[in-house]
């Protein structure tokens, strides 16, 4: 059954007809060609596919597009400033070597932004707990935690 939906993706209104069982991850990658969102496991375990729905991190491989009628979705493509520079979280990942192969990075960045938005003054322990849903096979996590801590400082300065 084709389900008519309308939602906002990275600030733009998107209207489409989808199958009832179309996952948000496939809709983003195959329909909208937003391939920055990665599919690592497709079993809701790894967090590589993390995007924001209404500002909160969710695993896009475990949500149907049909469920999101009227919602606001933000992907990794939607967080970079228009001038092509990096979001402070991306810049911190780069500065701290918070990535190696980069497969997990988009999901890590999206989870970390949600974490800092709700807990701007996190400890390293809270950062680790906040990234519980994101797996990385390369880095050993140390530099990811450093990156999020650095971004917390940078984003704290940005805040009015």
């Amino acid at each position: 059954m084709a389900v008519p939906i309308e939602l906002t993706v990275n600030g733009k209104t998107v209207a489409a007809e989808v199958e009832a069982d179309t996952l948000l991850s496939s809709f983003l990658r195959e329909h909208l060609r937003l391939t920055g969102t990665h599919i690592g496991c497709d079993t809701s375990s790894c967090g590589a596919c993390t995007v924001h729905v209404g500002g909160r991190a969710v695993k896009s491989c475990n949500v149907l597009v049909a469920q999101l009628h009227g919602s606001e979705v933000t992907t990794i493509e939607g967080i970079t400033p228009r001038d092509g520079s990096l979001h402070p979280m991306q810049a911190a990942f780069k500065a701290c070597h918070g990535l190696q192969c980069g497969f997990c990075t988009a999901g890590m960045v999206m989870s970390a932004i949600d974490l800092l938005r709700h807990h701007p003054h996190t400890t390293d322990e809270e950062i680790r707990a906040g990234l519980e849903g994101n797996l990385c096979r390369c880095t050993g996590y140390q530099n990811i935690v450093k990156a999020v801590a650095m971004a917390a400082k940078a984003m704290g300065r940005q805040r009015p």
């Binding site: 809701s44 967090g47 993390t50 729905v53 909160r56 991190a57 969710v58 695993k59 475990n62 949500v63 989870s111 949600d114 974490l115 906040g130 519980e132 849903g133 994101n134």
Partner: peptide, 9 residues
């Protein structure tokens, strides 16, 4: 419960 993403949905 689970992880932040699971708790958000």
């Amino acid at each position: 419960i689970g992880d932040p993403q699971v708790r958000n949905r």
